[in-house]
């Protein structure tokens, strides 16, 4: 895998969401991602930053353009130092929410993007990484 570009952005307040999404859109447009794929990626990114704000009081996102096996894509890593998630399998279930919400953010994000991975240590924080390729499904 080759990293083409790298950038990071702190997410501390509601107001950081829109500029962040615009950055993701810029990256996706830069590699010529189709509109449907762009919208999927941006929506997934939006879910993850909102979780970061709601449950972990903010965090930071690493934005990368990468290339693997001749494909280019956008990889986003969401890292927070929040309370962490005790039961990841449960959190990944449709409809599970500790925040009186729809409980669709994490499982929906996984369905929206090509690659999804989550790591979380209770008391230390959560890291979610997603990758979406230019010609993803």
């Amino acid at each position: 895998m080759i990293q083409i570009s790298k950038d990071s952005m702190p997410i501390l307040r509601e107001q950081d969401v829109v500029p962040f999404r615009n950055r993701v859109r810029e990256l996706a447009t830069k590699i010529g991602m189709s509109l449907v794929n762009q919208t999927k990626l941006i929506t997934a990114a939006s879910e993850l930053v909102r979780n970061m704000l709601k449950y972990a009081n903010g965090g930071k996102v690493l934005l990368e353009l990468i290339s693997r096996n001749g494909q280019t894509g956008v990889r986003l890593t969401f890292e927070d130092q929040g309370p962490g998630i005790k039961d990841i399998d449960l959190a990944m279930k449709d409809g599970f929410s500790t925040g009186k919400s729809l409980g669709l953010g994490l499982p929906g994000t996984k369905r929206l993007v090509n690659e999804f991975s989550i790591k979380s240590v209770p008391g230390e924080g959560t890291t979610v990484t997603i990758t979406h390729w230019k010609n993803g499904r």
Binding site: V36, T39, K40, T43, E47, D94, L102, L104, P107, G108, T109, R111, L112
Partner: peptide, 8 residues
Amino acid sequence: QTIVHLGI
């Protein structure tokens, strides 16, 4: 399409 994938 996005709404459907999200599961809304």
